[in-house]
Amino acid sequence: MKILICSLLLICGAIAFRTQSTGVKGKLVCGSKPATGVNLKLFDEDNGPDPDDVLDQKTTDSEGNFFLSGSSMELTPIDPELRIFHDCNDQGSPCQREWVIRIPAKYITNGPEVKEVMDLGVLNLEVELDNESRSCTH
């Protein structure tokens, strides 16, 4: 009987976890020039002792374009965010500027394949955001 109960609990726990995916694309510029080679990471931001999950990471291409997508198996809805690490308009300050852009829930798909990708359009990295920070390790 104990084995049956434990088996049922394990099966229910496994079913409760579900794969969720998301994606984001856009183009980065620094002033009037493409922001090439900018580091980007797509995260599932987790609170508490569970560390953030990296869903995807890439750098922008020669035109400043990017596309990131990924999935994670979670019990609760994922909290995706794009982190952009760059040196545009930083006047030689140490480390890199870090932008964090939250991805709205409507761009989260149940399952491993992204159905709707968030299009950020063109972002000019010269802008100074109130909540931006600096990152020396990323």
Results as ranks from 00 to 15, higher is better:
Phe85Val: 04
Val29Tyr: 04
Leu10Lys: 04
Arg18Lys: 10
Gly64Thr: 11
Arg18Phe: 01
Ser62Gln: 15
Asp130Met: 09
Asp52Cys: 01
Asp119Leu: 03
Met73Asn: 13
Gln96Ser: 09
Asp119His: 08
Pro104Trp: 02
His138Trp: 15
Thr60Met: 08
Glu98His: 05
Asp50Tyr: 12
Ile15Cys: 03
Ile84Ser: 04
Leu123Asn: 05
Gly26Ser: 06
Asp130Ser: 11
Glu63Leu: 13
Ser93Lys: 15
Glu63Trp: 05
Pro80Ile: 05
Met1Asp: 07
Glu132Cys: 00
Ile15Glu: 01
Ser7Met: 10
Gly37Phe: 11
Gly37Leu: 11
Glu128Asp: 09
Cys95Pro: 06
Leu10Asp: 01
Phe17Cys: 11
Ser133Trp: 04
Leu4Thr: 12
Lys2Cys: 07
Gln96Gly: 04
Asn47Lys: 13
Ser7Arg: 05
Val122Asp: 03
Asp61His: 11
Glu128Lys: 13
Gly121Glu: 08
Ala35Glu: 02
Glu113Pro: 00
Asn65Trp: 08
Val117Gly: 00
Arg97Pro: 01
Cys6Trp: 09
Val100Met: 07
Gly23Ala: 14
Val122Pro: 00
Ser7Tyr: 02
Gly23Trp: 08
Val100Ala: 13
Lys27Val: 10
Cys88Phe: 14
Arg102Asn: 06
Asp56Glu: 09
Lys41Glu: 14
Pro94Ser: 07
Cys30Phe: 06
Lys25Leu: 11
Ala16Pro: 01
Lys27Ile: 10
Gly23Leu: 07
Pro94Trp: 10
Ala105Thr: 13
Leu42His: 09
Ile78Asp: 04
Pro34Asn: 05
Thr59Pro: 00
Leu42Val: 13
Ser69Ile: 00
Ala35Tyr: 08
Asp50Leu: 12
Phe66Ser: 02
Ala14Trp: 14
Leu68Ala: 06
Thr59His: 08
Cys88Arg: 09
Ser93Gln: 15
Ile15Gln: 02
Gly64Asn: 04
Ile11His: 01
Arg102Ser: 07
Asp61Lys: 06
Ile3Lys: 13
Leu123Met: 14
Leu55Gln: 06
Lys106Asn: 10
Glu98Leu: 12
Pro94Cys: 03
Lys58Pro: 00
Thr22Gln: 03
Lys115Gln: 15
Val24Glu: 07
Asp56Thr: 12
Ile5Asp: 06
Gly70Lys: 01
Phe67Ser: 09
Asp52Lys: 02
Gly92Ile: 13
Glu98Phe: 02
Gly64Trp: 12
Leu120Pro: 01
Cys95Phe: 11
Asp119Arg: 05
Glu98Gln: 13
Asp50His: 11
Pro94Gly: 06
Met73Thr: 15
Asp56Ser: 14
Asp44Pro: 06
Met118Arg: 02
Glu116Ala: 03
Phe43Gly: 02
Pro77His: 03
Leu129Met: 14
Asn47Arg: 12
Val38Lys: 08
Leu123Ser: 05
Gln96Met: 08
Leu10Gln: 07
Lys115Asn: 11
Ser21Trp: 09
Glu132His: 02
Glu113Val: 14
Glu113Gln: 12
Arg83Met: 09
Arg83Lys: 12
Lys2Pro: 04
Gly64Phe: 12
Glu45Ser: 03
Arg18Pro: 00
Gly37His: 01
Cys136Val: 11
Ile84Ala: 03
Ala16Asn: 06
Glu74Tyr: 09
Gly13Arg: 03
